[in-house]
Write a protein that binds this DNA or RNA. Structure first.
Lengths: 234, 234
DNA sequence: TCGGGGTGTTGATTCAGATCAATTCCAAAA
DNA sequence: TTTTGGAATTGATCTGAATCAACACCCCGA
Protein backbone atom coordinates (compact mmCIF):
# COMPACT_ATOMS: atom_id res chain seq x y z
CA UNK A 1 0.00 0.00 0.00
CA UNK A 2 2.47 2.59 1.19
CA UNK A 3 5.20 3.14 -1.29
CA UNK A 4 7.67 4.13 1.39
CA UNK A 5 8.68 2.81 4.76
CA UNK A 6 8.64 6.24 6.27
CA UNK A 7 5.28 5.88 7.90
CA UNK A 8 5.68 2.25 8.84
CA UNK A 9 8.92 0.51 9.41
CA UNK A 10 11.20 3.47 9.75
CA UNK A 11 9.26 4.89 12.57
CA UNK A 12 8.34 1.66 14.26
CA UNK A 13 10.84 -1.08 13.57
CA UNK A 14 14.02 -0.45 15.48
CA UNK A 15 15.98 -2.65 13.12
CA UNK A 16 15.55 -0.52 10.03
CA UNK A 17 15.97 2.74 11.83
CA UNK A 18 19.74 2.22 11.89
CA UNK A 19 19.94 2.21 8.11
CA UNK A 20 21.58 5.14 6.39
CA UNK A 21 22.17 6.48 2.94
CA UNK A 22 21.59 4.22 -0.01
CA UNK A 23 20.34 1.40 2.13
CA UNK A 24 17.22 3.31 3.02
CA UNK A 25 16.40 3.49 -0.66
CA UNK A 26 17.29 -0.17 -1.18
CA UNK A 27 14.92 -1.12 1.56
CA UNK A 28 12.05 0.92 0.25
CA UNK A 29 12.68 -0.36 -3.20
CA UNK A 30 12.94 -4.03 -2.50
CA UNK A 31 10.27 -4.57 0.09
CA UNK A 32 6.81 -5.73 -0.89
CA UNK A 33 3.78 -5.54 1.32
CA UNK A 34 0.80 -7.85 1.09
CA UNK A 35 -2.50 -8.27 2.87
CA UNK A 36 -3.10 -11.42 4.90
CA UNK A 37 -6.28 -12.91 6.28
CA UNK A 38 -6.54 -14.39 9.76
CA UNK A 39 -5.42 -17.98 9.69
CA UNK A 40 -3.03 -17.63 6.77
CA UNK A 41 0.39 -19.17 7.22
CA UNK A 42 3.42 -17.03 6.47
CA UNK A 43 5.94 -19.80 6.77
CA UNK A 44 6.18 -23.23 8.29
CA UNK A 45 8.69 -25.02 10.43
CA UNK A 46 11.38 -26.41 8.17
CA UNK A 47 10.91 -23.85 5.41
CA UNK A 48 13.96 -22.04 4.12
CA UNK A 49 13.96 -18.33 4.84
CA UNK A 50 13.17 -16.15 1.86
CA UNK A 51 13.58 -12.84 3.63
CA UNK A 52 12.61 -10.87 6.67
CA UNK A 53 9.05 -9.93 7.55
CA UNK A 54 7.72 -6.85 9.21
CA UNK A 55 4.20 -6.48 10.55
CA UNK A 56 2.56 -3.37 9.23
CA UNK A 57 -0.85 -4.02 10.75
CA UNK A 58 -2.71 -6.96 12.21
CA UNK A 59 -1.18 -9.57 14.45
CA UNK A 60 1.15 -12.49 13.83
CA UNK A 61 1.66 -15.58 15.97
CA UNK A 62 4.84 -17.60 16.23
CA UNK A 63 3.95 -21.23 16.76
CA UNK A 64 5.72 -24.52 17.21
CA UNK A 65 4.20 -27.94 16.73
CA UNK A 66 5.68 -31.16 18.05
CA UNK A 67 5.66 -34.67 16.64
CA UNK A 68 2.32 -35.51 18.29
CA UNK A 69 0.66 -32.51 16.67
CA UNK A 70 0.59 -30.58 19.94
CA UNK A 71 0.86 -26.93 19.09
CA UNK A 72 2.11 -24.12 21.30
CA UNK A 73 1.85 -20.43 20.58
CA UNK A 74 5.28 -19.14 21.55
CA UNK A 75 4.80 -15.40 21.12
CA UNK A 76 2.96 -12.65 19.32
CA UNK A 77 4.42 -10.22 16.80
CA UNK A 78 2.81 -6.81 16.78
CA UNK A 79 2.73 -4.05 14.22
CA UNK A 80 6.15 -2.48 13.72
CA UNK A 81 8.01 -5.61 14.74
CA UNK A 82 10.11 -7.78 12.48
CA UNK A 83 10.26 -11.55 12.45
CA UNK A 84 11.86 -14.34 10.48
CA UNK A 85 15.28 -12.67 10.55
CA UNK A 86 16.82 -15.35 12.70
CA UNK A 87 16.48 -18.10 10.16
CA UNK A 88 17.61 -15.83 7.36
CA UNK A 89 20.73 -14.53 9.07
CA UNK A 90 21.87 -17.94 10.27
CA UNK A 91 21.02 -19.63 7.00
CA UNK A 92 19.07 -22.39 8.71
CA UNK A 93 15.49 -23.48 8.07
CA UNK A 94 12.77 -21.91 10.19
CA UNK A 95 12.48 -23.68 13.53
CA UNK A 96 9.04 -22.23 14.12
CA UNK A 97 6.05 -21.33 12.01
CA UNK A 98 4.45 -17.92 11.60
CA UNK A 99 0.77 -17.38 11.00
CA UNK A 100 -1.55 -14.44 10.87
CA UNK A 101 -3.82 -14.21 13.91
CA UNK A 102 -5.51 -10.96 13.02
CA UNK A 103 -5.78 -9.89 9.42
CA UNK A 104 -3.47 -7.16 8.32
CA UNK A 105 -0.62 -6.15 6.12
CA UNK A 106 2.85 -7.62 6.23
CA UNK A 107 6.01 -6.44 4.49
CA UNK A 108 8.54 -8.80 3.08
CA UNK A 109 12.15 -7.80 2.51
CA UNK A 110 13.88 -10.26 0.18
CA UNK A 111 16.83 -12.27 1.40
CA UNK A 112 19.30 -10.72 -1.03
CA UNK A 113 18.42 -7.23 0.12
CA UNK A 114 18.79 -8.07 3.77
CA UNK A 115 22.09 -9.80 3.17
CA UNK A 116 23.43 -6.86 1.22
CA UNK A 117 22.35 -4.41 3.88
CA UNK A 118 23.69 -6.60 6.67
CA UNK A 119 27.07 -6.87 4.97
CA UNK A 120 27.09 -3.13 4.54
CA UNK A 121 25.79 -2.11 7.92
CA UNK A 122 27.09 -3.79 11.06
CA UNK A 123 24.59 -1.69 12.97
CA UNK A 124 21.76 -3.60 11.30
CA UNK A 125 23.15 -6.93 12.45
CA UNK A 126 23.55 -5.47 15.90
CA UNK A 127 19.94 -4.30 15.83
CA UNK A 128 18.81 -7.81 15.01
CA UNK A 129 21.02 -9.11 17.77
CA UNK A 130 19.27 -6.82 20.22
CA UNK A 131 15.89 -7.99 19.03
CA UNK A 132 16.90 -11.61 19.41
CA UNK A 133 18.34 -10.92 22.85
CA UNK A 134 15.03 -9.49 23.98
CA UNK A 135 13.13 -12.45 22.57
CA UNK A 136 15.55 -14.77 24.31
CA UNK A 137 14.98 -13.04 27.64
CA UNK A 138 11.27 -13.48 27.14
CA UNK A 139 11.71 -17.13 26.25
CA UNK A 140 13.69 -17.63 29.44
CA UNK A 141 10.95 -15.97 31.42
CA UNK A 142 8.45 -18.23 29.78
CA UNK A 143 10.39 -21.32 30.76
CA UNK A 144 10.57 -20.04 34.32
CA UNK A 145 6.89 -19.33 34.44
CA UNK A 146 5.69 -22.58 32.96
CA UNK A 147 7.87 -24.47 35.41
CA UNK A 148 7.18 -22.50 38.56
CA UNK A 149 3.88 -20.64 38.27
CA UNK A 150 0.32 -21.94 38.30
CA UNK A 151 -1.79 -21.44 35.22
CA UNK A 152 -3.81 -18.87 37.12
CA UNK A 153 -0.74 -16.78 37.82
CA UNK A 154 0.50 -17.22 34.27
CA UNK A 155 -2.79 -15.91 32.95
CA UNK A 156 -2.82 -12.95 35.33
CA UNK A 157 0.69 -12.03 34.21
CA UNK A 158 -0.39 -12.24 30.61
CA UNK A 159 -3.25 -9.88 31.42
CA UNK A 160 -0.82 -7.49 33.05
CA UNK A 161 1.38 -7.68 29.97
CA UNK A 162 -1.58 -6.95 27.72
CA UNK A 163 -2.62 -4.15 30.02
CA UNK A 164 0.89 -2.76 30.02
CA UNK A 165 0.45 -2.04 26.36
CA UNK A 166 -2.38 0.25 27.35
CA UNK A 167 -1.17 3.69 28.33
CA UNK A 168 -3.66 4.07 31.17
CA UNK A 169 -1.21 2.50 33.57
CA UNK A 170 -1.77 5.09 36.24
CA UNK A 171 -5.47 4.85 36.81
CA UNK A 172 -6.42 1.74 38.73
CA UNK A 173 -9.16 0.83 36.26
CA UNK A 174 -8.00 -0.68 32.99
CA UNK A 175 -10.03 -1.74 30.02
CA UNK A 176 -8.43 -3.78 27.31
CA UNK A 177 -9.15 -5.97 24.34
CA UNK A 178 -7.74 -9.49 24.21
CA UNK A 179 -5.74 -9.63 20.98
CA UNK A 180 -6.44 -13.30 20.35
CA UNK A 181 -9.02 -16.03 20.89
CA UNK A 182 -9.30 -17.87 24.18
CA UNK A 183 -7.90 -20.98 22.56
CA UNK A 184 -4.83 -19.05 21.52
CA UNK A 185 -4.46 -17.53 24.96
CA UNK A 186 -4.62 -21.03 26.40
CA UNK A 187 -1.94 -22.13 23.94
CA UNK A 188 0.12 -19.07 24.86
CA UNK A 189 0.26 -19.98 28.53
CA UNK A 190 0.40 -23.69 27.87
CA UNK A 191 -2.89 -24.99 29.20
CA UNK A 192 -6.01 -26.62 27.76
CA UNK A 193 -8.84 -24.37 26.74
CA UNK A 194 -11.14 -25.97 29.33
CA UNK A 195 -8.70 -24.97 32.03
CA UNK A 196 -8.54 -21.51 30.54
CA UNK A 197 -12.31 -21.15 30.88
CA UNK A 198 -12.23 -22.22 34.49
CA UNK A 199 -9.40 -19.85 35.34
CA UNK A 200 -11.25 -16.98 33.74
CA UNK A 201 -14.44 -17.80 35.57
CA UNK A 202 -12.58 -18.00 38.88
CA UNK A 203 -11.03 -14.59 38.29
CA UNK A 204 -14.40 -13.23 37.30
CA UNK A 205 -15.95 -14.59 40.49
CA UNK A 206 -13.29 -12.99 42.63
CA UNK A 207 -14.09 -9.70 40.95
CA UNK A 208 -10.49 -9.31 39.82
CA UNK A 209 -11.63 -8.72 36.27
CA UNK A 210 -14.74 -8.83 34.19
CA UNK A 211 -14.75 -10.63 30.85
CA UNK A 212 -17.16 -10.09 28.00
CA UNK A 213 -16.07 -11.64 24.75
CA UNK A 214 -12.64 -10.27 24.10
CA UNK A 215 -13.26 -7.27 26.24
CA UNK A 216 -11.72 -7.20 29.69
CA UNK A 217 -12.53 -4.77 32.44
CA UNK A 218 -10.09 -4.62 35.31
CA UNK A 219 -11.52 -2.53 38.14
CA UNK A 220 -8.34 -2.50 40.19
CA UNK A 221 -5.23 -3.03 38.11
CA UNK A 222 -2.99 -2.78 41.13
CA UNK A 223 -4.74 -5.61 42.91
CA UNK A 224 -4.55 -7.75 39.82
CA UNK A 225 -0.86 -7.01 39.43
CA UNK A 226 -0.27 -7.92 43.08
CA UNK A 227 -2.03 -11.25 42.62
CA UNK A 228 0.04 -11.98 39.59
CA UNK A 229 3.20 -12.02 41.70
CA UNK A 230 2.65 -15.63 42.57
CA UNK A 231 1.38 -17.16 45.75
CA UNK A 232 3.71 -15.20 47.98
CA UNK A 233 0.81 -13.34 49.54
CA UNK A 234 2.08 -10.97 52.19
CA UNK B 1 47.29 -21.03 32.78
CA UNK B 2 47.79 -21.17 29.06
CA UNK B 3 49.27 -17.97 27.85
CA UNK B 4 47.60 -18.25 24.48
CA UNK B 5 44.16 -19.06 23.22
CA UNK B 6 45.53 -21.35 20.57
CA UNK B 7 44.88 -24.53 22.46
CA UNK B 8 41.61 -23.41 23.99
CA UNK B 9 39.30 -20.81 22.61
CA UNK B 10 40.63 -20.53 19.10
CA UNK B 11 40.14 -24.14 18.41
CA UNK B 12 36.92 -24.62 20.33
CA UNK B 13 34.93 -21.42 20.54
CA UNK B 14 33.36 -20.62 17.21
CA UNK B 15 33.04 -16.98 18.14
CA UNK B 16 36.73 -16.21 18.38
CA UNK B 17 37.68 -18.28 15.40
CA UNK B 18 36.47 -15.52 13.08
CA UNK B 19 39.01 -13.07 14.45
CA UNK B 20 41.89 -12.05 12.24
CA UNK B 21 45.05 -10.04 12.38
CA UNK B 22 45.65 -7.78 15.34
CA UNK B 23 42.48 -8.87 17.05
CA UNK B 24 43.86 -12.31 17.70
CA UNK B 25 46.69 -10.70 19.63
CA UNK B 26 44.32 -8.34 21.41
CA UNK B 27 42.28 -11.28 22.54
CA UNK B 28 45.22 -13.26 23.83
CA UNK B 29 46.56 -10.22 25.54
CA UNK B 30 43.45 -9.06 27.28
CA UNK B 31 41.87 -12.24 28.41
CA UNK B 32 42.48 -13.59 31.89
CA UNK B 33 41.76 -17.11 32.96
CA UNK B 34 40.96 -18.14 36.50
CA UNK B 35 40.15 -21.35 38.33
CA UNK B 36 36.69 -21.77 39.86
CA UNK B 37 35.39 -24.25 42.39
CA UNK B 38 32.04 -25.97 42.07
CA UNK B 39 29.33 -23.75 43.50
CA UNK B 40 31.09 -20.45 42.83
CA UNK B 41 28.98 -17.76 41.22
CA UNK B 42 30.33 -16.04 38.14
CA UNK B 43 27.67 -13.41 37.97
CA UNK B 44 24.17 -12.83 39.27
CA UNK B 45 20.92 -11.71 37.78
CA UNK B 46 20.93 -7.94 37.70
CA UNK B 47 24.72 -7.57 37.55
CA UNK B 48 26.19 -5.39 34.86
CA UNK B 49 28.28 -7.25 32.33
CA UNK B 50 32.02 -6.84 32.73
CA UNK B 51 33.01 -8.90 29.74
CA UNK B 52 32.49 -12.20 27.99
CA UNK B 53 33.31 -15.56 29.53
CA UNK B 54 34.60 -18.69 27.91
CA UNK B 55 34.68 -22.07 29.58
CA UNK B 56 38.11 -23.61 29.33
CA UNK B 57 37.35 -26.64 31.47
CA UNK B 58 34.70 -27.68 33.96
CA UNK B 59 31.02 -26.95 33.60
CA UNK B 60 28.91 -23.84 34.00
CA UNK B 61 25.19 -23.60 34.69
CA UNK B 62 22.91 -20.76 33.63
CA UNK B 63 20.24 -20.31 36.23
CA UNK B 64 17.25 -18.09 36.84
CA UNK B 65 15.55 -17.51 40.16
CA UNK B 66 12.09 -16.06 40.58
CA UNK B 67 10.64 -13.87 43.31
CA UNK B 68 9.63 -16.86 45.45
CA UNK B 69 13.18 -18.19 45.39
CA UNK B 70 12.30 -20.97 42.97
CA UNK B 71 15.34 -21.67 40.89
CA UNK B 72 15.50 -23.23 37.45
CA UNK B 73 18.61 -24.40 35.67
CA UNK B 74 18.11 -23.12 32.14
CA UNK B 75 21.10 -24.60 30.38
CA UNK B 76 24.64 -25.86 30.68
CA UNK B 77 27.74 -24.27 29.21
CA UNK B 78 30.47 -26.68 28.25
CA UNK B 79 34.18 -26.25 27.63
CA UNK B 80 34.87 -24.22 24.52
CA UNK B 81 31.59 -22.32 24.75
CA UNK B 82 31.20 -18.66 25.53
CA UNK B 83 28.57 -17.07 27.72
CA UNK B 84 27.63 -13.70 29.11
CA UNK B 85 28.02 -12.01 25.73
CA UNK B 86 24.33 -11.22 25.43
CA UNK B 87 24.22 -8.82 28.33
CA UNK B 88 27.51 -7.24 27.30
CA UNK B 89 26.56 -6.61 23.70
CA UNK B 90 23.12 -5.25 24.49
CA UNK B 91 24.38 -3.19 27.40
CA UNK B 92 21.70 -4.51 29.73
CA UNK B 93 22.14 -6.17 33.12
CA UNK B 94 22.36 -9.95 33.20
CA UNK B 95 18.90 -11.49 33.15
CA UNK B 96 20.24 -14.80 34.40
CA UNK B 97 22.97 -15.92 36.73
CA UNK B 98 25.96 -18.11 35.93
CA UNK B 99 27.55 -20.50 38.38
CA UNK B 100 30.19 -23.17 38.23
CA UNK B 101 28.74 -26.67 38.44
CA UNK B 102 31.96 -28.57 38.00
CA UNK B 103 35.25 -26.96 38.97
CA UNK B 104 37.40 -25.77 36.15
CA UNK B 105 39.02 -22.84 34.46
CA UNK B 106 37.16 -19.94 32.92
CA UNK B 107 38.48 -17.16 30.73
CA UNK B 108 37.26 -13.62 30.99
CA UNK B 109 37.58 -11.17 28.11
CA UNK B 110 37.10 -7.59 29.34
CA UNK B 111 34.24 -5.52 28.04
CA UNK B 112 36.47 -2.93 26.38
CA UNK B 113 38.30 -5.60 24.41
CA UNK B 114 35.11 -7.23 23.21
CA UNK B 115 33.61 -3.91 22.24
CA UNK B 116 36.72 -2.94 20.31
CA UNK B 117 36.81 -6.25 18.50
CA UNK B 118 33.08 -6.19 17.80
CA UNK B 119 33.35 -2.70 16.32
CA UNK B 120 36.24 -3.89 14.20
CA UNK B 121 34.89 -7.24 13.13
CA UNK B 122 31.30 -7.60 11.98
CA UNK B 123 31.97 -11.31 11.69
CA UNK B 124 32.40 -11.51 15.43
CA UNK B 125 29.00 -9.94 16.05
CA UNK B 126 27.55 -12.33 13.52
CA UNK B 127 29.18 -15.24 15.32
CA UNK B 128 27.55 -14.15 18.56
CA UNK B 129 24.27 -13.80 16.73
CA UNK B 130 24.54 -17.39 15.57
CA UNK B 131 25.27 -18.56 19.06
CA UNK B 132 22.30 -16.68 20.42
CA UNK B 133 20.09 -18.05 17.66
CA UNK B 134 21.03 -21.58 18.60
CA UNK B 135 20.36 -20.91 22.27
CA UNK B 136 17.03 -19.37 21.33
CA UNK B 137 16.05 -22.45 19.35
CA UNK B 138 16.91 -24.57 22.36
CA UNK B 139 14.89 -22.32 24.63
CA UNK B 140 11.91 -22.68 22.30
CA UNK B 141 12.30 -26.43 22.40
CA UNK B 142 12.41 -26.28 26.15
CA UNK B 143 9.16 -24.33 26.29
CA UNK B 144 7.54 -26.86 23.97
CA UNK B 145 8.77 -29.77 26.04
CA UNK B 146 7.81 -28.42 29.42
CA UNK B 147 4.35 -27.68 28.11
CA UNK B 148 3.68 -30.85 26.14
CA UNK B 149 5.91 -33.68 27.38
CA UNK B 150 5.75 -35.65 30.63
CA UNK B 151 8.68 -35.45 32.98
CA UNK B 152 9.58 -39.01 32.05
CA UNK B 153 9.90 -38.11 28.39
CA UNK B 154 11.74 -34.92 29.21
CA UNK B 155 14.27 -36.88 31.19
CA UNK B 156 14.72 -39.49 28.47
CA UNK B 157 15.36 -36.75 25.95
CA UNK B 158 17.93 -35.22 28.23
CA UNK B 159 19.62 -38.60 28.46
CA UNK B 160 19.63 -38.84 24.69
CA UNK B 161 21.14 -35.36 24.50
CA UNK B 162 23.85 -36.32 26.99
CA UNK B 163 24.44 -39.53 25.11
CA UNK B 164 24.65 -37.64 21.83
CA UNK B 165 27.75 -35.99 23.16
CA UNK B 166 29.28 -39.43 23.39
CA UNK B 167 30.73 -40.54 20.08
CA UNK B 168 29.58 -44.14 20.46
CA UNK B 169 26.34 -43.28 18.72
CA UNK B 170 26.43 -46.28 16.46
CA UNK B 171 26.66 -49.11 18.93
CA UNK B 172 23.39 -49.73 20.70
CA UNK B 173 25.07 -49.80 24.11
CA UNK B 174 25.98 -46.40 25.50
CA UNK B 175 27.73 -45.58 28.73
CA UNK B 176 27.83 -42.05 29.95
CA UNK B 177 28.49 -39.89 32.95
CA UNK B 178 25.83 -37.47 34.18
CA UNK B 179 27.50 -34.06 34.15
CA UNK B 180 25.53 -32.75 37.12
CA UNK B 181 23.82 -33.78 40.32
CA UNK B 182 20.34 -35.27 40.31
CA UNK B 183 19.01 -32.13 41.89
CA UNK B 184 20.39 -30.12 39.03
CA UNK B 185 19.00 -32.55 36.50
CA UNK B 186 15.63 -32.17 38.18
CA UNK B 187 15.95 -28.41 37.97
CA UNK B 188 17.00 -28.72 34.33
CA UNK B 189 13.81 -30.52 33.35
CA UNK B 190 11.66 -28.56 35.77
CA UNK B 191 10.57 -31.16 38.31
CA UNK B 192 11.12 -31.82 42.01
CA UNK B 193 14.04 -34.01 42.98
CA UNK B 194 11.67 -36.55 44.53
CA UNK B 195 9.96 -36.92 41.19
CA UNK B 196 13.34 -37.24 39.54
CA UNK B 197 14.18 -40.18 41.77
CA UNK B 198 10.93 -41.91 40.95
CA UNK B 199 11.37 -41.39 37.23
CA UNK B 200 14.86 -42.80 37.38
CA UNK B 201 13.73 -45.80 39.35
CA UNK B 202 10.93 -46.47 36.89
CA UNK B 203 13.35 -46.35 33.98
CA UNK B 204 15.72 -48.59 35.87
CA UNK B 205 12.91 -51.10 36.51
CA UNK B 206 11.98 -51.19 32.86
CA UNK B 207 15.57 -51.98 32.06
CA UNK B 208 15.85 -48.98 29.79
CA UNK B 209 18.94 -47.82 31.60
CA UNK B 210 20.96 -48.64 34.66
CA UNK B 211 22.04 -45.92 37.07
CA UNK B 212 24.89 -46.06 39.55
CA UNK B 213 25.80 -42.70 41.01
CA UNK B 214 26.44 -40.47 38.06
CA UNK B 215 27.18 -43.37 35.83
CA UNK B 216 24.54 -44.45 33.35
CA UNK B 217 24.52 -47.63 31.35
CA UNK B 218 22.11 -47.75 28.44
CA UNK B 219 21.92 -51.27 27.04
CA UNK B 220 19.85 -50.33 24.01
CA UNK B 221 20.24 -46.70 23.02
CA UNK B 222 17.84 -47.08 20.12
CA UNK B 223 15.03 -48.31 22.34
CA UNK B 224 15.62 -45.45 24.74
CA UNK B 225 15.61 -42.96 21.90
CA UNK B 226 12.35 -44.41 20.61
CA UNK B 227 10.74 -44.09 24.01
CA UNK B 228 11.87 -40.50 24.24
CA UNK B 229 9.71 -39.60 21.26
CA UNK B 230 6.71 -39.07 23.47
CA UNK B 231 3.78 -41.32 24.01
CA UNK B 232 3.11 -41.80 20.35
CA UNK B 233 4.02 -45.46 20.50
CA UNK B 234 3.62 -47.07 17.10
C1' DT C 1 -36.11 -19.45 9.83
C1' DC C 2 -33.50 -23.31 10.32
C1' DG C 3 -29.54 -25.63 10.61
C1' DG C 4 -24.44 -26.20 11.23
C1' DG C 5 -19.77 -25.59 12.51
C1' DG C 6 -16.55 -23.26 15.20
C1' DT C 7 -15.69 -21.34 19.79
C1' DG C 8 -16.39 -21.35 24.43
C1' DT C 9 -18.39 -23.24 28.81
C1' DT C 10 -19.47 -26.63 32.31
C1' DG C 11 -19.43 -30.98 34.86
C1' DA C 12 -17.45 -35.51 36.40
C1' DT C 13 -13.52 -38.01 36.79
C1' DT C 14 -8.70 -39.28 36.53
C1' DC C 15 -3.90 -38.82 37.01
C1' DA C 16 0.76 -36.90 37.02
C1' DG C 17 3.48 -34.65 39.82
C1' DA C 18 3.87 -31.76 44.12
C1' DT C 19 4.10 -31.82 48.89
C1' DC C 20 5.11 -33.48 53.45
C1' DA C 21 7.74 -36.47 56.17
C1' DA C 22 11.06 -39.85 57.20
C1' DT C 23 14.97 -42.44 56.26
C1' DT C 24 19.17 -43.95 53.92
C1' DC C 25 23.30 -43.08 51.58
C1' DC C 26 27.66 -41.33 51.12
C1' DA C 27 31.71 -38.52 51.12
C1' DA C 28 34.46 -35.32 53.44
C1' DA C 29 35.96 -33.61 57.93
C1' DA C 30 37.47 -34.50 62.56
C1' DT D 1 37.16 -44.76 62.96
C1' DT D 2 33.13 -41.69 64.05
C1' DT D 3 30.71 -37.59 62.94
C1' DT D 4 28.12 -34.83 60.15
C1' DG D 5 25.61 -32.65 56.68
C1' DG D 6 24.16 -32.57 52.12
C1' DA D 7 22.28 -35.64 48.39
C1' DA D 8 19.24 -39.14 47.23
C1' DT D 9 15.57 -42.37 47.99
C1' DT D 10 11.06 -43.87 49.54
C1' DG D 11 6.34 -43.70 51.17
C1' DA D 12 1.73 -41.49 51.98
C1' DT D 13 -1.15 -38.11 50.65
C1' DC D 14 -2.94 -34.14 48.28
C1' DT D 15 -4.14 -31.28 44.37
C1' DG D 16 -3.96 -28.71 40.02
C1' DA D 17 -4.72 -29.46 35.64
C1' DA D 18 -5.78 -32.89 31.97
C1' DT D 19 -9.16 -35.69 30.09
C1' DC D 20 -13.62 -37.18 28.61
C1' DA D 21 -18.17 -35.88 27.55
C1' DA D 22 -22.04 -32.81 26.95
C1' DC D 23 -23.92 -28.72 26.11
C1' DA D 24 -24.52 -23.56 25.18
C1' DC D 25 -23.58 -19.79 22.23
C1' DC D 26 -23.09 -17.23 18.17
C1' DC D 27 -22.20 -15.90 13.72
C1' DC D 28 -22.91 -17.20 8.86
C1' DG D 29 -24.95 -19.21 4.96
C1' DA D 30 -28.90 -21.57 2.90
Amino acid sequence: MDKSCSNCAHRQAAEWSVLEGANVAHMDDARRSRGFLAGEAIYHEGDEATGVYCVSSGLVGIRKVDADGESVLLRLVRPGQTFGYRSLLTGTPHGVSAEVLKEGRICHVPAATVHRMAADSPALVMAFFRHLARDMAEAENKVMETVTASCRVRFLRLLVAFGGETDSDEGTRVRLELPVSRQDIASLIGVRSETMSRVIRAIENEGLAHFKGRHVDIPDARRLADESFGSLAA
